[in-house]
Design a binder for these strands. Sequence first.
DNA 1: AGACCCGATGTCAGGATCTGTCATCACCTA
DNA 2: TAGGTGATGACAGATCCTGACATCGGGTCT
Lengths: 189, 189
Amino acid sequence: MARWEPGARERLQAAALDLFVDQGYDETTVSQIAARAGVTDRTFFRHFSDKRESLFAGSEQLVTLFTDAVARSTAPDPLDVASEALAASTAFFPEERRPWARTRTAVVLANPALAEREQLKMVTIAQATAGALRDRGVEEPAATLLGHSTVTVFQVAFERWIRDGEDRSMGDLLQDTLSALRETLVPRT
Amino acid sequence: MARWEPGARERLQAAALDLFVDQGYDETTVSQIAARAGVTDRTFFRHFSDKRESLFAGSEQLVTLFTDAVARSTAPDPLDVASEALAASTAFFPEERRPWARTRTAVVLANPALAEREQLKMVTIAQATAGALRDRGVEEPAATLLGHSTVTVFQVAFERWIRDGEDRSMGDLLQDTLSALRETLVPRT
DNA sequence: AGACCCGATGTCAGGATCTGTCATCACCTA
DNA sequence: TAGGTGATGACAGATCCTGACATCGGGTCT
């Protein structure tokens, strides 16, 4: 028999989300989260750098999803590369996850401190994607601009994906949103 | 004779930036900032919601610069509206400010907590701009996409503006960057 | 002038976040 | 069986941030 139950990290994440939903982020203390997971406060901070981070574990995978797709792509046009990266990200958003994504997003939007961290993650993805594009030979400032635009499209598509009553797939919404961005930015004829 | 020296807020801002530059953000305590400004810790938090915010006072003006420009514009094409908003923002970045902007940016980039707050401010501007566009009748998702793209262009142009050796004006760089974004997103022919 | 209110600040107490340090104990390896 | 390793516990402490109440200069009303 182990000295402690394994999977402390997962228990902490689950406990944190539960408590944030129940009583709000500000009203939840680290002690409460740790207690519910059956560990001490100190252990919480060994797994997560701060209280907010417990809601954002797993976002590194999203980063690699984008960067890998960019690195793997064989398309000559950078815009097509970005499009492929967006398509690859759909792996992270299967239909079963939609309800969970809705509640998690509600928690994040309800608290500025969490929204702040969420934005940081998005910028991280944008910068990583820009870096991957640069590695493929895309020049600046195109690489950075395209990296950020890709994330913008991603964010808007995600917002639509979790909107009440929306039933189109993440993949459809991403392509649709990308088209909308291009139409918005190309000159009228 | 007044009971206390007036201008506590300004003194606190100056003290904060000085100390952050000298010894780093993490190594600077609120007590030190307050002491240098000649007030108590409690007074610091009456002026700023948290330690980071002392570096971001004034960013609301940037928001109104964008939203006012959008509201005032008479251009029929949303893209031209965005372009005018970018042009309006140059008022915030006269040549004299460039050295100050460089040091402030260095401090922000050196600390993740500050970078996080900076991103939140940028997103606030993006959302406010999108809202102003919507008020002018721009439909979604175009309004949100254009709002975010405008801020992306702004950020990239700003990075170029403070780059070592750069001497073009903020206005030139903004227009140049906007063109680059459009070229990146239009299909090859 | 005197009474009065208001706003910015001081003072004090205390909870919550996060870090450093060292001890503990199951498990693995030699 | 001895020792090393890794995750955790236990404890102390600095710092951040908030609530509650007191203070006092300056403006306003009468």
